[in-house]
Amino acid sequence: AQFIESYVCRMCSRGDEDDKLLLCDGCDDNYHIFCLLPPLPEIPKGVWRCPKCVM
Rank of each mutant, 00 (worst) to 15 (best):
P39F: 02
G15I: 10
S13D: 11
A1V: 05
E42H: 04
G15M: 08
I43C: 05
E5Q: 12
D28E: 09
C12Q: 02
L23P: 12
M11H: 05
I43D: 04
C27A: 00
C35L: 01
G46A: 11
Q2S: 14
S6K: 05
D18C: 07
E42I: 12
E5N: 15
R10K: 14
C50K: 00
P39Q: 05
L22K: 05
G26S: 08
G26E: 07
P39C: 06
C27L: 01
Y31S: 00
C50S: 00
S13M: 07
P38I: 02
I4L: 05
C50R: 00
C9M: 01
Q2T: 15
E42W: 05
L36H: 12
F34Y: 15
D16V: 12
C35Y: 01
N30H: 07
D28T: 03
G46L: 07
Y7R: 14
L23I: 08
Y31Q: 02
G15P: 13
P41R: 14
C9D: 01
M11W: 07
C27R: 01
Q2R: 06
L37E: 10
Y31L: 03
A1I: 14
Q2N: 12
C27D: 02
K52S: 07
R49I: 07
G15E: 13
G26Y: 05
K20C: 04
D19L: 08
D29E: 12
D29M: 06
L37D: 14
D16W: 05
D25V: 12
D29P: 05
G15A: 11
L37A: 12
C27W: 00
P39D: 06
C27I: 00
G46S: 07
C12H: 01
L21R: 07
E17K: 09
E5M: 14
L37Y: 05
C24Y: 01
R10G: 08
C12R: 03
C53S: 01
K45V: 07
Y31W: 04
P38K: 05
K52H: 07
M11I: 09
C35W: 01
D29T: 10
E5K: 13
C53N: 00
N30Y: 08
K52Y: 05
C53I: 00
R49E: 07
L22Y: 00
Y31R: 02
D28G: 13
L37F: 07
G15R: 13
M11P: 02
F3I: 07
C35P: 02
V54F: 03
R49T: 11
P39S: 13
W48L: 01
L21W: 08
G46E: 15
L36Q: 03
H32I: 01
R10P: 04
C27M: 03
I43R: 12
V47N: 11
Y31K: 02
D16T: 07
E17C: 15
L36V: 09
P38N: 13
C12T: 02
C50T: 00
R10W: 04
D29V: 06
L21P: 02
D25W: 04
K45D: 15
P39N: 11
G46Q: 10
K20H: 09
V47A: 06
V8G: 09
I43S: 10
C12F: 02
R49D: 01
D18Y: 05
D28P: 15
S6H: 05
E42F: 06
I43K: 09
P41V: 11
V54T: 13
W48V: 01
C35M: 00
L23R: 15
Y7S: 14
L36I: 09
I4V: 12
G46F: 05
W48I: 08
E17S: 11
L22D: 00
Y7Q: 11
